[in-house]
Simulated scan of single mutants.
Amino acid sequence: LTGLSAEVNEIDLDNDMQYNSDEFDDEATYRDDSTFVYKKHADSVFTARIDSKTSDLVISGGQDDIAYVWSAFSGETKFQCDGHKDSVTCVGFSHDGVYAASADLSGLIKVWKVETGKEVWSFECSDIEWMQWHQIAHVLIVGTQDGDTWMWKIPSGDCKTFQGHGFSAASGCLMPDGKRLCVGYENGSVKVWDMKTATCLHHVNGKDIHSSSVVCLDCDKDNNLILTGSTDATAKVIHSTTGKVVTTFSCIEENSEDENSVESCAFSYSQSSLAATGTLTGKLNIWDVPTQTNRNTCQHTGGVVKLKWDITSPLVYTACLDGVIRLWDARNGKCCYEWAGHQDALLDFDVSKDGKTLVSVSEDNTARVFSLHKPDS
């Protein structure tokens, strides 16, 4: 499940996931900064994405085996994505908002025509780890627990398969050039695939790889570097052309007995020299890539589930197991804003393309819409 810890991944998602209630701050728990609360889901909500074309429509999926497409502005449900056999853990809109996809833990993928709410395509594979739409085409990509990565044209279903090597395809990221795909595997290795020929350009393995599963990936906007995060509590920077590991960022805490892993990682959009990692122990680290140094460390009261850079400024959003969304200034490590309202652990969030709206989902069975405010950069 993208953005969740390895600890959470090992739990049966059809049972309630439990977190330490001490992680929740009383003031934050009872303060609600959201502009709207979506309450259609009957169980934990695992994932949500905002349509990049409209910055309004949201698709959310949850443990109730259902996905919904709804409006962040009005709260109206546009349609319900029925027919799933298990928890819906992956959702997303195509680049132009024509299609929406939903996928569940059993491996069933469905694609819906947004305008009509009608199902136009479906496929069943092994348990799904992650899903991503292509940036400029009606192409859907999925990584599975059996190690294979699938790519389909929608709605024709024309297919290519990127074969694994016996380990789960735990994470994936389509590079900005739209021509290469990076996949991180359960054994700590990374492959760079050619999308057109389905051939492996680089297999990053051996002594330089992670010692355990690669749970998050990102690529810089210039298509040169790949950032990986692992359950071994390290992040690595890999050169996409040579397949060589440039550096390793250690997020290991000395003298700590707490389980730790890098849950989320990303390069900055506005300042290519910066990267960020978020860990299960609640640390957001800002890294200076050229000098390979830790620029700032931002401490949370609970584990960081997901992070996302602002598109236009060196600011980072984080979602935390304490139920709070935070905005950090990467330049000085200070927290600029907090948005509270959820009554349980956050599991995912997304920010609209226009930067005005954030939608978060939680174990409290809700999705919440927040109006964003940013400090002057």
Rank of each mutant, 00 (worst) to 15 (best):
L4M: 12
V8T: 14
D12L: 12
N20A: 10
E23R: 08
E23M: 13
F24I: 04
T29D: 09
D32L: 11
V37T: 14
V37Q: 08
Y38A: 12
Y38K: 01
K39Q: 15
K39T: 15
K40L: 11
A48Q: 06
D51L: 08
S55I: 01
A67T: 06
F73A: 11
S74D: 06
E76M: 03
G83W: 02
D86N: 13
C90Y: 01
V91I: 07
G92L: 10
F93H: 13
H95S: 15
S106Q: 10
K110H: 09
F123Q: 15
C125P: 00
W133E: 06
A137G: 06
T144Q: 12
G147I: 05
P155M: 08
S156F: 03
S156E: 15
G164W: 03
F167N: 10
F167E: 10
S168K: 08
S168W: 04
A170N: 12
A170T: 14
S171W: 00
C182W: 01
E186A: 12
K191Y: 01
D194Y: 01
T199K: 14
K207H: 05
V214P: 07
V215Y: 10
N224L: 11
L227W: 05
T234Q: 08
G243A: 07
K244Y: 10
S250F: 04
E253L: 14
D258F: 04
E263R: 14
E263C: 14
C265P: 01
C265L: 08
A266P: 02
F267N: 09
S273I: 09
L274F: 13
T277C: 13
G278C: 04
N285V: 11
N294D: 02
G302S: 15
V305G: 00
L307K: 01
K308F: 03
W309S: 10
S313K: 07
S313R: 08
Y317I: 06
R326E: 03
G333Q: 09
G341L: 00
D350I: 05
V351S: 05
V351N: 03
V361H: 10
V361N: 01
S362W: 03
D364A: 07
N365F: 06
H373P: 00
P375V: 06
